[in-house]
């Protein structure tokens, strides 16, 4: 087990290095640079700025310096756009915000989705099932960019109950709409996945044996059916977790949370190389770690899997 974890982490290093190099090359191929603007800078001014940020050095040297600074000093470099902040500052400020509402959205999506799916499966072909399935499909048809405007119009403009955006240190009125917007469509997909998985498990031989032994329904459900039901759900929840934590660009932009997604999109448009790279590395590392955790979770849910 420990060997497996170490092996996986060792593979992560070259993976991240490939990610950095690919991202660096793509970034440099994209036309325009951080200092391209509507008013082109005079050559002398541009030269001074490039010298200040080391952009006058050969490309390969820039890449080597960049990686060296990360490894030796954990320094992801300055922002070319925001002069009084560096990449570490930007991540330190934006990540906690994205993590907070991202994590909450994940919990809401997982709890509601699984509950809805299990209920539907147990009450298969009853009105509860139909209701849960329709609710799931409706939720899945509402991606966050549809939910955002609906929520803001309803709760901010018509009802006046919630502030239309901002973060304010993460007070709950500011959290509600981002969390609903982000979790809705996942509630839909998680519930449908849970329902079909549970139906399949409930029809399998070992459940029939359990029933034949005369076990109570709750014991069958919780002790025997739940774990195998969760296997496909877990493999889906892993990527959802990374996606929800990091992929909330729309929510950040729409609700002005100040989260990392805003900086990510902004850095791509501004060609703010170091911010773009820094956030990409962060997202990459999170993906690697969460994938590892998902794989470890498999072993717990399915005794047949051993590392």
């Amino acid at each position: 087990m420990l060997n497996y974890v170490i092996r996986r982490l060792a593979v992560a290093i070259p993976t991240l290095l490939i990610l950095i190099i690919t991202c660096f090359i793509l970034m440099k191929i994209a036309p325009g640079g951080p200092f391209t603007s509507e008013r082109p800078l005079p050559p002398q001014v541009l030269a001074n700025i490039e010298a200040k940020y080391g952009l006058d050095k050969p490309q390969w040297l820039q890449l080597v310096d960049y990686v060296k600074n990360i490894v030796l000093h954990f320094d992801f470099g300055p922002s070319f756009k925001f002069k009084d902040r560096d990449v570490n500052d930007i991540i330190a400020q934006g990540l906690p915000i994205s993590l907070t509402y991202g994590f909450l959205s994940f919990v809401v999506a997982a709890v509601c989705g699984i509950a809805l799916g299990v209920t539907a499966a147990i009450r298969h072909n009853t009105w509860i099932d139909y209701f849960a399935v329709s609710l799931g499909i409706a939720a899945q048809a509402l991606p966050n960019f549809i939910m955002g405007p609906i929520l803001i119009l309803t709760f901010t403009l018509y009802l006046g109950w919630l502030p239309g955006g901002g973060w304010n240190g993460g007070q709950w009125p500011y959290l509600i709409m981002p969390v609903i917007a982000l979790s809705t469509s996942f509630i839909g997909s998680i519930s449908r996945l849970t329902r079909s998985s549970m139906l399949e498990v409930m029809n399998s031989n070992f459940i029939r044996t359990a029933k034949a032994k005369g076990l109570s329904t709750s014991t069958i459900l919780w002790r025997h059916a739940m774990k195998p039901t969760m296997l496909p759900v877990i493999s889906y929840l892993g990527p959802v977790f990374v996606y929800v934590l990091t992929g909330s660009v729309f929510v950040d932009l729409y609700f002005s949370t100040g989260g990392l997604g805003q900086s990510y999109v902004g850095s791509a448009l501004n060609r703010d190389y170091s911010v773009l790279l820094g956030v990409t590395i962060l997202y990459g590392s999170l993906t690697v770690i969460v994938n590892l955790l998902t794989d470890l979770a498999y072993a717990w849910f399915d005794p047949k899997i051993r590392f």
């Binding site: 925001f82 902040r85 930007i90 400020q93 934006g94 901002g166 973060w167 950040d252 002005s256 949370t257 100040g258 989260g259 805003q262 900086s263 902004g266």
Partner: peptide, 8 residues
């Protein structure tokens, strides 16, 4: 007196 980047 206050600066919360990307927010206010």
């Amino acid at each position: 007196t206050e600066h919360l980047p990307n927010e206010r």
